[in-house]
Design a protein around this nucleic acid. Structure first.
Lengths: 323, 323
DNA sequence: TTGTATGCGTTATCAG
DNA sequence: CTGATAACGCATACAA
């Protein structure tokens, strides 16, 4: 910056201003500084700027894994929301391990990120307190709680599970089965699903769990397991990829969908509308969740005020052919 | 850090050592410092550390979008490779726009990232020169070139396209069609595919392009378009999601796969093995690409030497039922 | 509109 | 094994 200042015949602070508040410089000075910057190929050190201004212009997001479209959509949405404001994105993956989350939060706090987006509302040891002490805005996603760390943008997994059971019961299916992951949010959906099934007199739900992260192939094996234990009439899968895998397995076994087995998914991924038969599923706004989280953080950062602490993005059944 | 030092009765630099080179401190001093750190809830400012040491311990990756599994796998692989070394990951999305790439590179350079992973080998204005001047290690992925910026870990899209055509020709299919995206790498695959088709006397390939990013739904429309223009016997899709969409469309139209139309995909995503019929596809190592890129960067950063500038991860046809 | 003085929170270097 | 001193490259506060 000193070199640039010298080349442009100004003080270093003027170079700083040319970068950050160009509107406060005369056109002539600005031109000279920019010419010097180009000539010297000067690349401002943003870390030094962060240190001096104590504003890092970074936001972090922690997800179980980015390999799962539901989460990568959220990352995508967040990235799109913050990019126009020239914030940069730090990405952390827990791979479904709570202690990883705590380590990542600590590391990001060390980076002095200005805001953080988390997955879920249950967190590892020290996460909540560390975040609270840091005093940065935090948005939890992919679930809902009355008592967020700071803000939450998501939907109730428990209620979504209930709604799925209600939908299937309403269509007259009585013998229900479930295939899903082992993470907190899948578990919440399962619990809601079973509650309504039980309350509706549909009896016990046949459950097959697959370890998260799960893909369509695992669903095939899980379905085989379920079929060996009984004859379900309708199957709720904790995400669309599992549902797709189940439908493929049915095709392989000559089981008609929905004729013999109705299949319902979760998330409304692109494959849901495309697969044959079209997949009845629970739509949730995965991209919007990230985008909204970004907006909430930015609003808090720029105005210092929260508009809403709890944003329920909801869910809705998308009825297609499979159930 | 000063507060911690005071509480522990040592100099600030000793606190720094407790954090970075604990093995150089006496057990007693170390214990005292750590106790003070815990007591005060001290979180070291890594940005300040970066400034003083000129080592940021960050690595950046730029992908078109993380919503596409092929790229999110690469991000995942990179994240896994660098996490154990306590490097952090900055993520940038171009959304398939070259000028975005240049802007992201510039921003990441400003952050003083220690290494960078790019998608593809064609880059926006100033990207190559800026990176070269910065002197940081760079790994290009998802393609191959004789003249990488620094290093490249990928495979030849052109050769993969050729191989696909060769495979289909070898199975006796003569009337070929193609559905694919509009990005550089898809284009390279298409070109290789057409070259071999032409050279093998199979005539012109019927081509339907869908704008990137593309999903299974777009493939349905593209296939409809192809069918309105002729009767292809085999279809090569530029990724498995497009192939899946094409297979679903065939199911809808009562077209037997592979009986009436053979379908071949690209990437070997989890859906390929799961879908019915099993998808014949071209396997590429998307996760490994990111992981390998991370290892190459770390090696360069720690030893200062490159083992291999050009790493060809290759590709291979995975034969299943669809072609 | 531009400049001067100062400090942000660490680590490198050199000494003891 | 521990400490004193001087950067690192900027932006804030204030002055002109």
């Amino acid at each position: 910056m000193e070199d640039v200042a010298r080349a442009a015949g100004v003080a270093p602070i003027t170079v700083s201003r040319a970068l950050n508040t160009p509107e406060k410089l005369s056109a002539e000075t600005l031109r000279a500084v920019r010419a010097a910057i180009d000539k010297l190929g000067y690349v401002p050190n943003l870390n030094a700027g962060s240190l001096a201004s104590s504003r890092s212009r970074t936001i972090a997001i922690i997800v179980p894994t980015v390999s799962h479209s539901i989460f990568s959509n959220t990352v995508d949405g967040l990235a799109q929301a913050i990019a126009p404001q020239r914030y940069q994105l730090l990405l952390g993956q827990t791979r479904y391990r709570a202690d990883e989350e705590a380590a990542l939060v600590k590391a990001f706090l060390g980076r002095r990120v200005e805001g953080m987006v988390l997955t879920g509302v249950k967190h590892g040891r020290g996460v909540r307190s560390g975040l609270l002490r840091a005093g940065i805005p935090v948005v939890e996603t992919w679930d809902l709680t009355e008592r967020p760390i700071h803000m939450v943008a998501g939907f109730s997994n428990h209620a979504a599970g209930q709604e799925a059971a209600r939908y299937l019961a309403g269509r007259g299916y009585s013998s229900l089965a479930y295939i899903g992951g082992t993470d907190d949010r899948s578990s919440a959906r399962l619990q809601g699903f079973c509650e309504v099934a039980r309350a509706g007199g549909l009896g016990e739900v046949a459950v097959a769990l697959v370890p998260s992260p799960s893909g369509p192939a695992e669903a095939g094996a899980a379905l085989a397991d379920l079929l060996s234990r009984g004859t379900p009439r309708a199957l709720f899968c904790s995400n669309d990829m599992l549902a797709a895998g189940a439908i493929f397995e049915c095709a392989r076994r000559g089981i008609a969908v929905p004729g013999q087995l109705a299949v319902m998914g979760f998330a409304d991924l692109p494959i849901a509308v495309s697969i044959e038969p079209g997949l009845t599923t629970m739509q949730v706004r995965s991209t919007e969740m990230g985008h909204r989280a970004g907006e909430m953080l930015l609003r808090q950062l720029s105005t210092g005020s929260v508009s809403k602490r709890i944003v329920d993005l909801g869910f809705s059944v998308v009825q297609r052919a499979s159930a």
